[in-house]
Write a protein that binds this DNA or RNA. Structure first.
Length: 275
DNA sequence: ATCCAGGGACGCG
DNA sequence: CGCGTCCATGGA
């Protein structure tokens, strides 16, 4: 078990942010996270320390990077236009959010599922997918049983994907998985690509991936933190709070982090027109 | 330009 | 309890 004192790191905020990944709050207040074939329990103790139930090796080689712990988010929080009250409030409200580095294949599948869908159902569908096609495993540290995320070769057959309430998205998943298996689509090359625009272009070539989903994938997996996904919440924010014109130029270079604060804050408010 | 394809959880009046 | 909406995309 690794104990860490961390600033700008909040489990609840990370779990409820716009990122779709396998993180679930347990009845004892701890959080179970699953990424690829890895499991991690995290809890915050009375001293305000975070306990990561994994080996030093797994922490250093995987989770540290996954949660983007090297990056100092307070730099961003200091750069906010003081006159922008809504954004200042949003940054305070979500200051513990981190932009994760999620597995590329897992992120592509997850965000294809996310389109025209709600978060409880998305999570439910992903879990069903993992139970059916993933590998049953037991976490060494806690003994907790879990299912790994499926491999591309397991998701190629369209018929196998039926009955999981994927709806019309099933064909997107089988086609993409097949293109990964026959090397038509090279995940490794995409992971190495530096340019946000080239990454987006390659992702947009996937059947079933459009502008919004491509932006989510480059931000949440490839960590191009200037990507700015615009969903219905962001549309509302820009329209109601910024009269249709958000000052993108002020935050060039880290727009994706700004987007997460805005998204998380907007969702927490019952009515955007008030406040 | 507009509609529909699957589907279900959730919030609100 | 019924209805609108939800982290959209592609094809007709």
């Amino acid at each position: 078990m690794i104990k860490k004192r961390l600033t700008n790191f909040n489990l609840e905020q990370i779990a409820d942010s716009g990122q779709i990944f396998r993180m679930n709050k347990q009845s004892d207040g701890s959080y179970d996270v699953i990424s690829k074939d890895k499991f991690l329990k995290i809890e915050e103790n009375k001293n305000g320390e975070f306990c990561f139930y994994c080996s030093q090796n797994d922490f250093d080689n995987y989770w540290h990077n996954f949660f983007d712990l090297e990056f100092d988010y307070s730099k961003i929080l200091k750069n906010i236009d003081k006159n922008d009250e809504f954004l200042s409030d949003a940054c305070k409200f979500g200051s513990g959010i981190r932009i994760l580095r999620q597995d590329l294949f897992e992120t592509i599948i997850s965000f294809i599922i996310s389109q025209q869908n709600n978060i409880p159902k998305i999570k439910n569908t992903i879990e069903k997918l993992c139970e059916k096609f993933g590998e049953a495993k037991k976490d060494k540290e806690t003994g907790i049983k879990y299912f790994t995320f499926p491999k591309a070769k397991d998701l190629c057959n369209l018929k196998d994907l039926q009955g999981l309430s994927l709806g019309y998205r099933d064909k997107y998943i089988s086609k993409f998985s097949e293109s990964v298996c026959n090397k038509e689509f090279n995940l490794k090359d995409l992971e190495k690509e530096e340019s946000l625009e080239i990454c987006k272009k390659k992702l947009l070539s996937i059947y079933g991936v459009g502008e919004k989903v491509a932006n989510c994938i480059v931000l949440f997996s490839l960590h191009k933190i200037n990507a700015f996904p615009i969903d219905t919440w962001m549309k509302k924010v820009i329209e109601i709070k910024y009269n249709g014109r958000f000052p993108f130029e002020k935050y060039d270079g880290y727009l994706g982090i700004i987007q997460q604060y805005l998204f998380f804050y907007a969702k927490s408010l019952k009515n955007l027109t008030e406040n």
